[in-house]
Amino acid sequence: MSEARSLVAPDSVSAPDALAASDASAPARHRFRAYGLVYVGDLPAPWAEPAPPGAPADVCVDLGPVRGPAHPERLDGSWIVESPSEAYCDWEGLRLRVSEGRRIGVEIGPGATREMAVVQIGYAASTVLLHQRGAMPLHAAGAAGPAGGALLLGDSGAGKSTFATMMARGDWALAGDDTIALDVAPGRPVGLHRAMRTARLFSDSAQAVAEAAGDPILAAGQGMGKDVRALVDPARGPAWPAPLRAVFKLEWLHPADAPLELERLATLPALHALRGAIGRPEIPRQMGLDGAYFRLLARVAAEVPVYVLRRPRDFAAAEPALALARRTVERLAAGETP
């Protein structure tokens, strides 16, 4: 983590955009890759990795006036799904419109900040966009190494972000801390896309992660929820998407010296655990995606072992739990049964 830097560090991913370069007078647009998609737009995304040169754009992010909803009295900060291909949100001065699974419109109004917009594009707006594409975003974290990837599920407060960040050491990298998209294209194994290279952590978690990694404390970000520290891992890790080897549902154990537990779930409880992780499930329900997502999740549950990993709620217990998760991934990749 010696290359860790703050999420609010100067933009490192702006680069001349081949798509925008046709008009020499146009400002360079930012290009980045997240969730297996290439984004091109008016705002930077320090949370994402740079897009490969020449990769065609999947998503456009446009800063400017955003058309409001048909029924403005319904605005309460939640997403309004106007149709399967149009959704709108007005939150603390920030207006977002996501269209056709390929456009994110952003209007920064009074009370909103540019950083709020940057973060909302990465999390909420991308979740809606992935739903519009039928790509089933999961409220989950993940990490991957040379042997493949691990998906981390769990209730809010189960420690997903911290666990994923701590896994992302050595030759492992973060896949995401909050929202994950899987590669579920037919004809190949289920894969783990890289959502983000940053993690938002509560300050006590960030402190512990930084100390465990031998790094200095990381700079705080602003306006991103949690309270909040961000880690950016350097350009390393596997080729994405990484083959998904295991799913771990994280739970806490009491007392603090209780031994770790790793329990493999049968197919039906595994499917239930995965289904509980669908991000903002009210949105795909309104889009009529429940049946399609159920079939995708059943495929994941059938192909990838799902475990409950229980560990004491104590940072000292984190290392053995991390080692167990990594070892499980490596054994599964080698064709062994953990």
Binding site: T267, L268, H272, R295, A298
Partner: peptide
Amino acid sequence: VLEARVSDDELVLLGPESEEYFG
């Protein structure tokens, strides 16, 4: 009712008003 095949010989169903899965 949601349905999905998890293997050649197992189908999973989930009813619209419950979280009980049927294999």
